[in-house]
Nucleic acid binder design. Structure first.
Length: 479
DNA sequence: TGAAATGTTGGGGCG
DNA sequence: ACGCCCCAACATTTC
């Protein structure tokens, strides 16, 4: 026990349970939880619109949780280092505890902050908790980073189960005097005004999500006890509730991946759903793989991992097409439905993300970074590692990527994974009068039944051919 | 975590 | 009964 306070520096670890920095800081003695809004330090990957909305509500939830256990959330704005230094001198704190972030900008910032604080005699403790395997800790037998998922996953499994989760922090000791705090609203996180479609973002997001640790645990409970049973089969069908929707909770640390792993494992044993559980844990491992790849390739958010793709002949003057894609009016139902789901709810089903990305990158030949930037701004689960891996995978220029010739046909994808058109009609009411047979290609409906919906902005067959030619023009380059 | 083009096979209609 | 053709249905190759 120390008789000076410790600062618990909160970032994207917005939970009380299984929280190493909070647990150890609280065990040490007087605790001062602090959130410092310094998003320019993460530039150019500061949180986008949907993320800011989520962050606002998650911080509000964290503040309430801390108050319930007799503590508080101190909110400040400014340079992380200067703010921590100021707080230390205001409160007499002699230690700073935090959980690690692994994005390159955050990691560099945290190392600078730690070094500076230690230089002036403060104790700094940081903990891994954002991933199951710490990025950089797992290499193949040659000491090289894995570049293919399956061997990475096998190596992960060979390491055995994650350790037990930490309990809630015990007795919370407050400092004798609390430092001053801003109000959450002072941070101006919630986007004001309307999004691209003229909808109020705030309302749409609020209608579709419950934010915070409690809601995150409820979603995990639903997954472990119900959805997991149907997950392996239903996860590919966007109209069905076959996926976990845990991604934003994991991104903001309302749940740790270790909690997800351990709870699913236990439920799987209890309910005899171990095989289904493994299918989900494999997907959870993709999240670790993405962080692992970002660790070794810190420039990958902006640069193709295979340099020859820098010379890819992207379409010139694609602004109009990009806007049609963003706004969900490409004329291709499965893509438009996905893009509308995105702006209404801040989320899109993964199967549809892949189809929408393929259309943007391959048929429209628009640089994948434009799609990544749009997703970054509109997804509540926007995560630099996952977003980068997903887009480079789709564009064919990343590790373990879809081969360049793999081009989705959005009509076939729609017919295969949304045969009755339930998903596309949910987001595109105009299609409700179009018969099932043509719901994924309304322009082909006889008798003007499909006329109500605009024709595709791109011809799928000819643009596919052009994409293959464009890709052939760079494929013989050295790498 | 593809789809189109091409090849093969076998059942059935037909003269 | 038989050969021929058509064309699903399935398999393989190619991008």
């Amino acid at each position: 026990m120390s008789n000076t306070p410790a600062l618990y520096w909160i970032r994207r670890d917005l939970r009380l349970a299984d929280n190493p920095a909070l647990f150890h800081a609280a065990s040490r003695g007087q605790l001062i939880p602090v959130y410092i809004h310094a998003d320019q330090e993460e530039a150019p990957w500061q949180p986008g619109g949907a993320s800011r909305w989520w962050l606002h509500h998650s911080l509000a939830s964290m503040a309430r949780s801390l108050e319930k256990i007799g503590s508080r959330l101190i909110i400040r704005r400014g340079s992380s280092l200067e703010t921590l230094q100021a707080l230390a001198s205001e409160t007499g704190a002699t230690a700073v505890f935090f959980n690690r972030l692994h994005e390159p900008a955050c990691r560099d910032r945290d190392q600078r902050v730690s070094a500076a604080l230690e230089n002036q005699g403060l104790e700094v403790q940081d903990y891994p908790t954002a991933t199951l395997i710490e990025p950089g800790a797992l290499t193949n037998l040659q000491g090289e980073p894995y570049r293919v998922f399956t061997p990475f996953w096998k190596a992960m499994q060979a390491l055995g189960e994650p350790s037990e989760c930490l309990p809630l922090p015990g007795d919370i000791q407050s400092p004798t005097v609390w430092p001053t705090s801003l109000c959450l609203d002072d941070l101006g996180l919630e986007p004001s005004g309307e999004n691209v479609a003229g909808h109020s973002w705030t309302r749409g997001l609020a209608e579709h999500w419950e934010v915070g640790e409690h809601a995150a645990n409820q979603s995990l409970e639903t997954l472990a006890e119900n959805t997991i049973e149907i997950y392996p089969v239903q996860r590919d069908f966007p109209a069905k509730p076959g996926v976990s929707r845990l991604s934003p909770h994991l991104h903001f640390g309302e749940l740790s991946p270790r909690q997800v792993w351990n709870q699913l494992r236990q439920a799987g044993l209890r309910n005899g759903t171990e095989a289904q559980t493994l299918a989900y844990l494999r997907q959870l491992a993709w999240r670790d793989f993405a962080h692992h790849v970002l660790h070794y390739f810190p420039r990958s958010p902006l640069e193709p991992m295979y340099p020859k793709y820098r010379d890819f002949p992207w379409r010139q003057d694609h602004e109009q097409l990009l806007r049609a894609w963003q706004q969900g009016r490409t004329g291709i139902p499965i893509v438009d439905a996905g893009m509308r789901e995105l702006w209404h709810t801040g989320w899109m089903h993964n199967r549809v993300r892949m189809v929408a990305a393929s259309l943007l990158v391959k048929n429209l030949r628009i640089p994948w970074g434009k799609g990544a930037a749009w997703f970054w701004d509109t997804l509540v689960d926007a995560d630099l590692a996952n977003n980068t891996m997903g887009w480079q995978w789709s564009a064919g220029c990343g590790v373990d990527a879809a081969p360049y010739f793999r081009i989705f046909n959005p009509i076939l994808q729609g017919e295969k994974f949304d045969a009755q058109g339930v998903y596309v009609r949910r987001w595109i009411p105009e299609l409700r009068g179009v018969p099932d047979k043509f719901v994924h290609k309304p322009w082909m409906a006889p008798g003007g039944q499909g006329k109500i919906y605009p024709s595709p902005v791109i011809d799928l067959a000819s643009s596919r051919k052009e994409a293959l030619e464009a890709l052939a023009s760079i494929r013989d380059a050295a790498n």
